[in-house]
Simulated assay, not measured.
Amino acid sequence: MSDDVSDLIRGLRLQAMACRGLGSPLNGDLLERAADDWLAGGPVRALLEPWAGLDLKGQFDTAVALRLIGAWHELALSGEDEAVSRAYDRLDVGMIWSAVQTAMVSHRDRFAAFMTHEPQTNEVRRSICLVGGFLEIAEATRLPLRCFEIAASAGLNLSWDRYRYRLGEATWGDPGASVSMDTDWTGPAPPVGATVEVVERAACDRRPTNLKDPNERRRLMAYIWADQTERLARARAAIEVALSNGVEVESADAVAWTGERVTLRPGTTTVLYHSVFWQYMPPESQAALEQLIGEIGAAASADAPFAWLRMEPPGSVPRMDVSLRLWPGGEERVLAEVHPHGAHVHWAGA
Rank of each mutant, 00 (worst) to 15 (best):
Met281Leu: 15
Met17Ser: 14
Thr269Trp: 05
His339Glu: 12
Thr141Pro: 13
Trp97Asp: 04
Ala154Cys: 02
Ile137Asp: 04
Arg218Gly: 02
Arg10Pro: 01
Leu77Glu: 07
Thr62Met: 07
Met221Ser: 09
Gly133Leu: 05
Ser159Pro: 02
Ala235Ile: 09
Leu31Phe: 07
Leu167Arg: 07
Val247Phe: 08
Gln101Pro: 03
Ile96Thr: 12
His339Arg: 06
Leu135Phe: 02
Ala154Leu: 04
Tyr88Val: 12
Ala307His: 00
Met281Lys: 04
Ala287Ser: 08
Arg325Ala: 04
Leu135Glu: 02
Thr269Glu: 01
Met181Ala: 03
Met320Val: 14
Ser178His: 05
Pro266Thr: 08
Arg164Ile: 06
Tyr273Trp: 13
Tyr223Thr: 07
Lys57His: 15
Met320Glu: 10
Ala254His: 03
Ile293Trp: 07
Glu284Gly: 08
Asp4Asn: 13
Glu295His: 13
Pro266Phe: 10
Trp172Arg: 14
Ala256Trp: 11
Phe111His: 11
Gly155Pro: 03
Gly330Arg: 04
Arg217Asn: 11
Glu284Ile: 10
Thr195Ile: 12
Ser159Tyr: 00
Phe306Asn: 01
Glu295Gly: 08
Arg231Gly: 10
Ile150Ser: 01
Ala233Glu: 06
Leu77Arg: 10
Gly267Pro: 11
Phe134Ile: 01
Arg90Ser: 15
Thr171Val: 02
Val131Tyr: 02
Ala242Gln: 00
Arg108Trp: 09
Arg319Ala: 14
Arg126Tyr: 00
Met281His: 06
Arg201His: 00
Gln228Cys: 11
Arg265Phe: 09
Ala237Met: 09
Ala350Gly: 11
Ala154Gly: 06
Val5Asn: 08
Asp109Val: 11
Pro318Gly: 03
Ile9Phe: 09
Met311Thr: 11
Thr116Asp: 12
Val249Tyr: 09
Ser275Ile: 04
Asp55Gln: 01
Arg319Thr: 14
Asp37Glu: 14
Gln291Trp: 12
Ala154Lys: 03
Glu149Cys: 03
Ala202Thr: 04
Thr270Ile: 05
Cys147Tyr: 07
Gln286Glu: 14
Pro318Arg: 00
Gln279His: 02
Lys57Arg: 15
Gly53His: 06
Arg166Trp: 04
Ile150Asn: 02
His341Asn: 09
Ala16Arg: 10
Phe277Tyr: 01
Leu47Thr: 12
Ala298Ser: 13
Leu8His: 11
Asp174Ala: 05
Ser285Asp: 15
Ser275Tyr: 01
Arg231Phe: 11
Asp227Glu: 05
Trp160Ile: 15
Leu167Asn: 08
Ala52Asp: 09
Gln101Ser: 15
Asp89Ser: 14
Gly267Ser: 10
Ala65His: 01
Glu200His: 15
Leu8Gly: 12
Ala235Asp: 07
Ala235Lys: 06
Gln59Glu: 01
Pro282Cys: 00
